[in-house]
Nucleic acid binder design. Structure first.
Lengths: 203, 203, 203, 203
DNA sequence: CATGAATGAGTCTTCATTCAT
DNA sequence: CATGAATGAAGACTCATTCAT
């Protein structure tokens, strides 16, 4: 019987192995956060669930907070990706359409992992704003700037702030506490109306 | 979801001494939360800062959560009072004026103890919605119902939700992260515009 | 409407009042021990259940152990009474009959409060042998001495010891763990047989 | 009655270092129990005496009860071993001889650690019957069954019960309170007499 | 003498982190 | 680099007891 050819290399190159370990840790952490919240997410439990020794975990992360930060970064990145692609795809669309798409994209982004999102925001000891979050802010600012002809912007920062906060807050609260508002796109439509009237330049 | 631990105070302080003790505990807890966040707010530290023995603390609160709940209740009560009195005083005013006053009242309410408010919302392990919060929701619902002639309300619950979340979210974020937006009442004015157009019935 | 005549004196004479307080405390303690075991029998709980302030409790008992000792004393006294009256009543009976009655009396005594008896023996931190227990030992010794003509006694103390320990141990274990052995007086009969043969003088 | 807390060791010590740690903990616990009783046997004290950190202790035992259970198991195991080997060695002996040996073995077993035995039985919050205790019951039942020709057994369970309780109770009480009865084997002889007459089939 | 508020030493237990192997 | 045994500071909470009123 001829030897089966290995499919996986005997040894993954160092970097890849590391990456897998890191990934396993982050995934384990995310699962535990989602399922049981921050309270029971001890580093030992995370390591165990990741199939990694506690010693190894500390090889890759200097402390617990670093793990949480990375989990958040990864999660917000995924969310930002959705928003970003939508923003790009609707660059040429009229404000009304683009705004509607933007809001729908935000809902979709929040639906990736609503519980994790909530836990990260409400239970995990204050994390610095992630770079991914900053990216969303940038996207929204760009969204406004690009359409300065259709939009009434006296104070750009204030507008970005209102846009961002309103969307995030309403979408998140709806996803968690009022899923019924997402039925038939009620909330999305209302939000589009509200924000459209806010942004629109009265001709 | 049944609670396993009660959060109601253990004994009603009958004597003045007791009342003072309870007060000292809540004040100490609020200070520590404000200054150092939830993480270092151990029951022992709270007791110490309150100038009270740990035993006394547990005479009045069955567990740590009960303290946090009471701190929140007290804080939200103070906020609700401001909002309530404004809502009452503007009952006869036209929507635009009343809404503006409402928003200003909310800002004022948030300025009572912004950091405490934030810590309570973001660091303290999920507390049940306080009865004071429920009161605010009621106030807003009433605000809308009373003006049904001037307001376009297809879905009352949804409108209350949007109104409440938007105000809370924007005011809170501004107070904490962008106090500059409150200069010259910029934010208040913008918010009034946004929400007015949201609520107004097109004649 | 004529004043109802008081039934209870305005003030019980001091001693009686004290006695009632003490009694209430002991009864409360016994109930708690029986229902929930020693672990939850805190002095505060005992006082509360007795309808007495913790301060008063400490007026009558110097410490917790004193309460436990008194509870035990009272309980063992009640048991001893049954045994004593039986011993007295059977003084003239032949050994066989008297022994049988004695054993039945012991079973009856154990049935007064089996759980309390067990808790007192197994959970309450070692109490000194109560004076009531000593009384039982005396009764048994007397039982043997009185019948020295029918009984083979080489070593009186040893015989008393064997008699007492055997009865106590078997009856207690049966009451708690094997009530079925008490059906149809199986155990009593067997015990009578065993101990009779142990005590009997071979003519 | 379902248990809320497990009492089985947390991890099986694979390495020798672990085994030694577990051993040190059990030995320390036994010493403290013997010397000062259950009341002062705090987990911290046990760990300290074992020369082990409190954290290590909880690595191997999920809670205090588990330690006590393990201490008891180890102790009762040692006792059972003595009894078992005696029962095996006397399998061919006549009842009288075997019974005498059995009783002597029980005395020897109780002399291994009389105080510990007592503390375990009387002060440590009720432990489940250990598997080792169950083994002793089995041994005695076997003892009786094997000699059914010489023994009068109407109710096997009752006989085992009487045999076991009587021996345990008398031997234990003697070892603790009346060592003088063990001088010159007085007690052993008397017990043999009593139990022999109880068990013997009248030809 | 009664009351009950106050005390604080001490309990069990967890968990982020280190380091010898 | 991986492992996992070990650490110990720190946390929530209890309860016998005291003492000012």
């Amino acid at each position: 019987m001829p030897r089966k050819t290995r499919v996986t290399p005997r040894k993954l190159p160092k970097q890849d192995r590391s990456k897998m370990t890191v990934d396993a840790i982050l995934t384990a952490a995310a699962h535990i956060l989602t399922e049981d919240g921050y309270d029971t997410a001890s580093t030992n439990r995370i390591a165990e669930r990741a199939g990694v020794s506690i010693g190894s975990l500390y090889q890759y992360f200097p402390n617990k907070e670093a793990i949480m930060t990375a989990v958040k970064e990864r999660h917000v990145d995924e969310m930002a990706e959705i928003v970003e692609s939508t923003v790009n795809q609707t660059a040429q669309q009229p404000l009304k359409v683009a705004l509607h798409e933007l809001i729908k994209a935000c809902v979709a982004a929040h639906l990736i992992a609503p519980t994790l999102h909530q836990v990260l925001n409400e239970q995990v000891p204050r994390l610095n704003q992630s770079s991914a979050e900053a990216k969303i802010t940038l996207l929204l600012r760009e969204f406004l700037v690009q359409r300065h002809d259709q939009i009434q912007v006296q104070n750009l920062e204030l507008s970005v702030f209102i846009l961002e906060r309103t969307i995030e807050s309403l979408v998140h609260a709806a996803v968690i506490d009022h899923p019924e508002f997402l039925q038939e796109s009620q909330l999305e439509e209302e939000m589009t109306r509200v924000l459209l009237s806010f942004l629109s330049r009265q001709a």
